[in-house]
């Protein structure tokens, strides 16, 4: 599903290049549940953004379902990711001025889904996350866990093939975190590919494969059982 080849990412500042990602190659198959781990500033978010086409690498090749993303323009990339990829962030990133309902509806608007269909899709997902009662509330009126649930619901409404989650439980207490991970697990079992960034070993244990990033390089890429042993 995802193939990265020799991906570099650097920021130039007054002619000094700071490398954030250095020569990373990686493949993720459909249906996998992958965790990216590493210390703060290692480049995890950057890697995730590149996978999600929110950012582009400085050099290297990226194939999404065989499609050469690195050769596409902004518009085509948007067209590609808006139907297939759902995002979840540590700080939820709901739009403050919109109610829960309107937040969920927004991705459908950008996909030009008809009004009637939109209504039923939003209603269905609200049901699934037991949030129908909260649909007219604004994000600030929800707890952190509820906001993250809404954000996940919003990511799922387009029925994405891939979910990219950047420290989704980072701002939540452990019970709320547990709940989110359960959702991911069910999704993965239903066939959705998931790539998550996390610092928590417990969350990592939900996945099948762990990629370790250090100073912009992938230093380890192994199934979860082995990593668990190595980490101990």
């Amino acid at each position: 599903m995802i193939r990265l080849k020799n991906i570099f990412k650097y920021y130039s500042n007054k002619f000094v290049k700071t490398y954030v990602l250095q020569d990373n190659s990686l493949e993720i198959r459909e249906g996998e549940f992958v965790t990216i781990m590493g210390p703060s500033g290692a480049g995890k978010s950057t890697l995730l953004h590149i996978m999600g086409m929110l950012d582009s690498p400085s050099s290297g090749e990226y194939y999404f379902y065989g499609e050469p993303v690195h050769r596409l323009g902004e518009k085509q990339r948007t067209e590609l990711h808006k139907r297939r990829i759902g995002f979840v962030f540590q700080s939820y990133h709901l739009i403050d001025e919109l109610t829960v309902y309107e937040n969920l509806e927004t991705p459908l608007l950008y996909q030009k889904v008809k009004a009637g269909e939109r209504k039923s899709m939003v209603a269905e997902i609200l049901d699934r996350f037991h949030m129908a009662a909260k649909k007219d509330l604004f994000p600030q009126q929800l707890s952190g866990g509820q906001q993250q649930l809404a954000a996940i619901a919003r990511a799922l409404i387009i029925q994405p093939k891939l979910i990219l989650a950047d420290e989704p439980t980072g701002n939540l207490n452990s019970r709320q975190g547990e709940e989110i991970m359960q959702v991911f697990k069910q999704l993965n079992e239903a066939g959705t590919t998931i790539v998550q960034v996390t610092h928590s070993e417990r969350n990592a244990a939900y996945s099948e494969r762990i990629i370790h990033l250090l100073d912009g390089r992938i230093v380890e890429d192994a199934p979860v059982s082995l990593v668990g042993v190595a980490g101990e």
Partner: peptide, 16 residues
């Protein structure tokens, strides 16, 4: 900026 980022993540084109 954040709203712009979110909308782009959700699939908005620049023109929109």
């Amino acid at each position: 900026a954040r709203e712009v980022g979110v909308r782009k993540v959700l699939g908005a084109f620049r023109g929109q």
